[in-house]
């Protein structure tokens, strides 16, 4: 296939990706150094209240937005350098916390709080998803052929469900005196509220994410298990390897590419954790990086969107995902180089 045909085939897709992914990235980058505000002006306003004999009049200076000829509030855009980044990162507070030795104070700042949760969420769920997925795949592979279809059907449900709805369905089991909270209260004899403190919410979020993604890992591992070389397994048996050693030295090395694949996808998806925050309504306790950006983008009570700060936090989020993915991507590049020779 020559270049011209290749280009004709990929052009629509590349065009859309440039228009809606690459250009917005450039735009976000520029916006993060700019700030757009309504033009304000000082006007003298005289307010009079009726009084006895004469009116009491007060003259005061007020700041009001300038209304343009078209009836809209005029805005200016100015370059502010790193100011938006500073207001997101709040480094002065961070240094203050470091110098006074109260490192916990850093986690009071929204950005650092979000970063802490996002990273912990990604790194804790990763091994759990791979472990649970592998366990389900091994046990299904062990089960009789007749029950496999229904089990796969049931397993796909948590994977396919809308993330917001999935986290809501777990939220409703625990909220207030939901049946599972009531059950735990009956067992422990204490009053439990799962949504009053951060760590219980976080636990539920980890649970939700593993519940949601483990089926994906399971299906892939299950497909991988079908291609395990039976001869190798049998010779391992003859060599006296027990079940655990066979798993460790034959099956897992065979599944290794799949584990890498799942880890890569999981890193990408987990890093943008967002739907759980909505579903569990945890804004007050637990927030994620993506939620922070969305929060800046949502109009506040006055109807203003903090585009500049949103852009700054978006850029910082992006730097994080690039750092996370650099290692796996370098590996892919090396593999490509290797296969080309």
């Amino acid at each position: 296939m020559n270049f011209k045909t290749f280009f004709a085939f990929v052009a629509p897709s590349v065009f859309m990706m440039i228009l809606f992914i690459a250009l917005p990235l450039v735009s976000v980058f520029i916006q993060s150094f700019q700030i757009t505000q309504p033009v304000m002006q000082q006007v003298e306003v005289e307010t009079c209240t009726p009084g006895f004999v004469t009116q009491t009049c007060v003259t005061e200076q007020k700041t009001v937005p300038v209304i343009g000829d078209d009836g809209k509030i005029q805005t200016t855009t100015e370059w502010v350098g790193l100011r938006s980044y500073r207001s997101v990162l709040q480094m002065d507070k961070v240094w203050e916390a470091v110098s006074s030795g109260r490192l916990r104070d850093i986690l009071q700042i929204d950005f650092w709080k979000a970063l802490r949760f996002t990273l912990m969420f990604t790194l804790i769920t990763l091994p759990l998803v791979i472990g649970v997925g592998l366990l389900i795949a091994l046990t299904v592979n062990n089960a009789s052929r007749r029950v496999r279809g229904p089990i796969i059907f049931v397993s796909l449900l948590p994977f396919i469900i809308t993330p917001v709805i999935g986290s809501l369905s777990i939220y409703w089991l625990f909220v207030g005196d939901g049946i599972l909270t009531a059950m735990m209260e009956r067992w422990s004899g204490t009053n439990i509220s799962m949504f009053a403190q951060a760590w219980t919410i976080e636990l539920l979020m980890y649970f939700y994410r593993v519940w949601h993604v483990a089926p994906f890992a399971f299906v892939i591992f299950y497909a991988g298990l079908q291609t395990v070389n039976m001869d190798t397994l049998e010779s391992a048996v003859i060599d006296g390897a027990n079940r655990w050693e066979r798993l460790r030295h034959v099956i897992i090395p065979h599944l290794m590419p799949l584990i890498v694949f799942i880890a890569l996808i999981h890193l990408m998806d987990c890093y943008r954790v967002f739907d759980e925050i909505i579903g569990f309504r945890s804004q007050a306790h637990v927030i994620s990086l993506q939620w922070l950006t969305v929060d800046f983008l949502t109009p506040d009570d006055a109807g203003n969107r903090a585009i500049a700060r949103a852009s700054a936090s978006a850029m910082l989020t992006m730097i994080g995902i690039v750092l996370l993915l650099i290692l796996p991507l370098r590996r892919t590049w090396r593999d490509h180089k290797g296969s080309a020779h």
């Binding site: 990235l25 916006q31 757009t36 990086l289 978006a314």
Partner: peptide, 24 residues
């Protein structure tokens, strides 16, 4: 190959980053 790798990087982008680019 490069197009595919670029697509992989694009896939990793959090959607809020892009939406911050569209909104204004």
């Amino acid at each position: 190959f490069w197009l595919l790798i670029l697509a992989l990087i694009f896939r990793a982008l959090p959607h809020s980053v892009l939406v911050a680019g569209y909104l204004p």
